[in-house]
Simulated scan of single mutants.
Amino acid sequence: MAASDTTAEEGPMATATATEPVVFEEHGEITVLKLNRPERLNAFTGDMADSIGRFAQSLNEGDYDTKCVIVTGEGRAFSAGADVREGLARRIPGNETEKAPWRPSHPERYAIRSIRDCDIPFISAINGHCVGMGWGLALGTDLRIAADNAQFQVSQLKRGIMADFGLGHLLTQQAGHQAALDLMLTGRMIDAQRAYEIGLLLKVVPLDDLMDTAFELAEEIIAGPSLSIAASKRVVYMNDNDDLQRVTDYTGLALGHLMQSEDFREGVNSFLEKRPAQYRGR
């Protein structure tokens, strides 16, 4: 997966035209990583997580001239989380078309850890809905700027499972236990201002200024010494990566059990049928 797979138009507001679900646009030493399924509000698939992980890992191998990455979503959302219809629905017992759900893949362990281990800083430019796996991706980046229309939610709870893609760990780490549990146990949606107040955002800006603000920050970063920047990033996460590893290992096992439950089936089916869920605790 090369950063030059997609050639950007002139200027920082270039629009992705490729059909790939994740595209990479080069702007000099800045690469824009764009989630590119706008018709599905950039809902996540396992392949998308793998692409992001491979790209982040390749940056540490010196494949590109990129010195900073901006992550954003094409269209009116950053990401609506996991693709329920194409992903979670296939994990309902009896519907499996992939490996058994009690042995789930762990794309979060690869994608989020790859971003954290990467020497290159990642900035999220968050537009619109940023929920579930999308929120996990955003929290896995180093710095986050949100448009004033951004909204955040631990949407996994509504599907009868739990926060994955590193979200449970990263939310607790960055917002504290009380705020994290409030969001994880209620599935409450919060706006950008609230996310800023609990320490999850660097700043909130008008939607029209989002990408310009992200590029200004990226330009300020890449003007600095890249070796010092890499060392600074590593020292910040040095004590955290082992914790993230343990949490994602446990999350994978817990998800396997939860995906065998009646509540998981009900959470997915109620979403697809657009009705309130009736959970039974089994």
Results as ranks from 00 to 15, higher is better:
Asp63Ala: 13
Ala77Lys: 04
Gly53Trp: 01
Lys99Cys: 02
Ile126Leu: 08
Gly168Tyr: 06
Gly252Cys: 11
Thr15Met: 13
Asp63Met: 10
Cys118Lys: 04
Gly128Pro: 00
Gly252Ala: 13
Phe55Glu: 01
Pro12Cys: 09
Gly11Gln: 04
Val22Ile: 14
Val84Thr: 06
Lys158Pro: 00
Asp249Ser: 11
Leu137Cys: 04
Gln173Ala: 13
Val71Tyr: 01
Met133Ala: 14
Asp243Cys: 01
Tyr196Pro: 00
Ile222Leu: 12
Met211Thr: 11
Glu39Asn: 10
Ala2Trp: 12
Glu108Tyr: 03
Met133Gly: 13
Ala49Cys: 13
Leu167Lys: 03
Lys67Cys: 07
Gly256Trp: 05
Gln245Met: 10
Gln260Phe: 00
Pro21Tyr: 04
His257Gly: 01
Thr19Gly: 08
Ile123Thr: 02
Arg144Ile: 05
Arg91Pro: 02
Ala150Lys: 09
Tyr250Leu: 14
Ala125Thr: 04
Ala195Trp: 11
Leu200Glu: 04
Val23His: 00
Thr31Gly: 03
Asp208Thr: 00
Gln193Thr: 15
Arg54Gln: 12
Pro206Glu: 07
Ala56Leu: 11
Ser270Met: 06
Ser270Lys: 05
Ile145His: 02
Thr248Arg: 08
Arg90Asn: 14
Ala3Leu: 11
Gly176Gln: 07
Leu139Gln: 04
Thr186Gln: 12
Gly81Glu: 06
His177Gly: 00
Ala77Phe: 04
Asp63His: 15
Gln156Asn: 07
Glu266Ala: 03
Met13Asn: 15
Val23Met: 02
Ala214Leu: 10
Glu26Cys: 00
Glu216Arg: 12
Gln156Phe: 10
Glu98Leu: 09
Ile198Ala: 12
Asp142Met: 06
Met13Lys: 15
Asn42Asp: 12
Leu167Thr: 11
Val131Asn: 01
Arg116Trp: 03
Thr66Pro: 09
Gly28Asn: 08
Gly224Thr: 13
Leu255Lys: 11
Ala231Trp: 06
Arg246Lys: 12
Gly81Tyr: 07
Pro101Asn: 09
Ala77Asn: 07
